[in-house]
């Protein structure tokens, strides 16, 4: 095989892509098969998996490619879910006419719009700082949303809010679990493709360059701040979209889903799967769901092995599972 040095990218993992295709095909076929063979429970598990993977892919855009350790991404999941719950609540029980609606497009627009706006405002502040300040500030802003929702009793406060009616779209019903899974799965594939294009584009190169060497970026004439902010907004909007799907999936939303420990789990998924690997978050989400389902079936104390695994993977498994797999298949660093 001849390679063209002009377009060659020695950093790209090659062996891994074949595995990823197998992964995506499995995710397309296995859950419906399980559903039709009388295991609807597994369809639910896979729906959750795909939504978590989607959220993790959005986090990976800033964390993996941009090197921005955002510890507040669960807030976007929550904002997206409440963008479904709040309009439905008002459409059912009155009040707040301007947003009261069952219309799915309204929910979708709100989920993406509110998340993007929140990312823009908080990102503009966080991104002025580096390193550990950035981690803690994103965390604090995430927790701010958590406390704000807890304090609003109209939407159930701590106890959460039941979504009585799923988002309504013409022609399809999200009440059908297979339809919902199809929507989530196709969304994941679409977002993967989107992130793939973004990270390979000029914009993506700037994002990677800013992670690798910000000083050098400035010296060649690129102001990283604005590009990072745009990436942060895209990531927030995508994660808000995942929240929109999550709200429609669980039909019950509570502030607990945006607690900072949820953000920690999202980070775990990205890092375990392998940051800056396009398909890493999916691998991470699969492992996370398996751990959760299997370990929690054995013991109520499943957080202990989970926590130990987290510590272990940080200490010994650098580059995540995707990185380990690359090493096994012989890609030199």
């Amino acid at each position: 095989m001849t390679t063209d040095p002009i377009t060659e990218n020695p950093g790209a993992p090659k062996s891994f892509n074949r595995f990823a295709i197998v992964l995506l095909v499995t995710l397309a076929l296995l859950p419906p098969a399980l559903f039709y063979s009388g295991n609807p429970f597994w369809l639910d598990v896979f729906t959750r998996l795909v939504i978590l993977a989607l959220a993790a892919v959005s986090l990976n855009l800033v964390l993996g490619y941009g090197g921005l350790v955002s510890f507040g991404h669960a807030a976007y999941l929550g904002l997206g879910a409440y963008a479904v719950g709040v309009p439905v609540y008002h459409a059912t029980y009155g009040g707040f006419e301007s947003i009261a609606s069952y219309n799915g497009w309204v929910h979708l627009g709100l989920a993406i719009g509110v998340s993007a706006l929140f990312a823009l405002i908080t990102g503009a502040i966080c991104l002025r700082t580096r390193g550990v300040n950035f981690i803690m500030i994103t965390m604090a802003f995430g927790q701010m949303v958590f406390y704000a929702i807890v304090s609003i009793e109209t939407y159930g406060g701590d106890d959460g809010l039941t979504i009585d009616v799923r988002s309504e779209f013409p022609g399809i019903s999200l009440d059908n679990p297979l339809t919902l899974y199809a929507l989530c799965y196709l969304s994941l594939v679409a977002v993967l493709y989107l992130v793939h294009r973004i990270t390979g584009s000029r914009f993506g190169m700037v994002l990677r360059g800013a992670r690798a060497n910000e000083q050098r970026m400035r010296a060649i004439g690129i102001d990283c701040y604005r590009y990072r902010l745009v990436a942060f907004v895209i990531s927030g909007a995508l994660c808000g979209y995942a929240g929109f799907l999550l709200g429609n999936f669980t039909t019950f939303i509570s502030p607990e889903m945006m607690d900072w420990t949820r953000s920690g789990e999202l980070m775990f998924i990205v890092i375990l799967g392998g940051a800056a690997y396009l398909y890493g978050p999916i691998v991470g989400a699969i492992v996370f769901i398996i751990l959760e389902e299997v370990l929690s079936g054995y013991t109520v104390y499943w957080h202990l092995p989970f926590g130990l695994l987290l510590i272990f993977s940080v200490l010994f498994l650098r580059g995540g599972l995707s990185g380990a797999m690359d090493k096994l298949t012989g890609r030199s660093q």
């Binding site: 294009r197 973004i198 390979g200 584009s201 000029r202 914009f203 993506g204 190169m205 700037v206 690129i222 590009y227 745009v230």
Partner: peptide, 8 residues
């Protein structure tokens, strides 16, 4: 560099 689609 706000070009998000074409491979750089």
């Amino acid at each position: 560099s706000y070009r998000f689609w074409q491979p750089a």
